[in-house]
């Protein structure tokens, strides 16, 4: 209890009220599909664990948009994730070490926490020509993935590239890029999206810390709490679809009234993700709310399968 009081005092000093925080935990608990009795437990997970779970974050063929998305996490903020909740042992974008010292960090973390660390991967792995298309410090992505991933307690593919290959794997794919699971033949937990929603990574991590296991997954390795329903089924504009009220041109009267974007090429019906309910950037918006059709960015091979964009399915 004392620890909890301490925790809330600290939060308040940082401008986060207890009420805001509990509301966030309720939202996260609901996003994860847990009953409301879990809310206090979710809050407890954030109240500074004694030993912060080690995380090794690998970056392969990517644009760092996935990392950027995590930096947008509001509750907990990235400062809390880094300083109080997780122990990010290796992360090229945020770590202060460089060069040889950075590589030592990776090597040491994998050795010290073998079988215990969570490996988060951002980006796809080049597989053609022995992985020649992607190297860090002289080692191919393929080598690094093979060395590090099998030693993790769990591998989380964060984003469409590490999950399914993403834009690198789109036709003609000269480097032979693949998602991590396919590239090295392991099972991974997948949180696809371009970018993925940080809420879903945080939800997965909380589930791991809280229940000691990863959440239930669908046949593509995606947590059901986030990817169990189609975008179409959760869309705020769904009633317009049922009423045959469609946008046929951007900027039109129908667009201003927020009609359905199906005829503008929306891929919501074949895309499974919680964008409409979780939204992005602290619940600010999501693409369809901004009047743009869903591109299906979290589905396998979406660059090839979902295009040409803006054409009705």
């Amino acid at each position: 209890m004392e620890k909890e009081r301490d925790f809330f005092e600290k939060l308040e000093k940082r401008g986060v009220s207890r009420r805001d925080f509990m509301r966030y935990c309720t939202f996260l608990t609901a996003t994860m599909g847990l009953s409301s009795s879990f809310v206090p437990k979710v809050a407890e997970v954030f109240a500074a664990p004694a030993q912060r779970p080690p995380v090794v974050w690998l970056q392969f063929g990517e644009c760092t948009g996935c990392t950027e998305s995590l930096l947008r996490s509001i509750y907990p903020g990235i400062d809390q994730l880094v300083l109080e909740i997780l122990s990010i042992e290796y992360h090229e974008t945020i770590m202060a070490a460089a060069g040889k010292q950075a590589e030592e960090n990776l090597h040491n973390a994998v050795k010290k926490y073998e079988g215990k660390f969570v490996c988060v991967v951002e980006g796809a792995v080049a597989t053609k020509y022995d992985g020649a298309y992607g190297k860090i410090g002289g080692k191919t992505f393929l080598q690094i993935a093979k060395e590090v991933c099998p030693k993790a307690a769990a591998v989380i593919c964060y984003g469409t590239c590490s999950t399914f290959g993403g834009v690198q794997a789109a036709n003609p794919n000269p480097g032979g890029y693949k998602g991590v699971g396919e590239a090295i033949g392991i099972k991974t937990l997948n949180i696809p999206g371009c970018p993925p929603n940080p809420v879903n990574l945080v939800g997965t991590i909380v589930s791991y810390l809280l229940l000691g296991k990863l959440p239930a997954l669908d046949n593509l390795g995606r947590p059901l709490f986030a990817y169990g329903k189609s975008v179409h089924d959760q869309c705020q504009r769904r009633s317009h679809f049922e009423n045959n009220e469609f946008v046929k041109e951007f900027g039109s009267k129908e667009a201003a009234m927020g009609y359905c974007l199906y005829k503008m090429g929306c891929r919501g019906p074949e895309t499974f993700n919680n964008c409409p309910t979780a939204k992005f950037n602290d619940g600010t918006s999501w693409p369809v709310e901004a009047g743009h059709p869903c591109l299906g960015c979290s589905e396998p091979n979406f660059w090839d399968k979902m295009s040409p964009f803006y054409k009705e399915m």
């Binding site: 948009g65 950027e68 998305s69 947008r72 371009c194 970018p195 951007f250 900027g251 039109s252 667009a255 201003a256 992005f280 950037n281 600010t284 918006s285 999501w286 693409p287 369809v288 709310e289 901004a290 009047g291 743009h292 591109l295 803006y310």
Partner: peptide, 17 residues
Amino acid sequence: GKNPHPQSLVVGGVTCV
């Protein structure tokens, strides 16, 4: 709509009317 990778830009203007 989101950050990173905002999704309201189209050839001819913007979608966020």
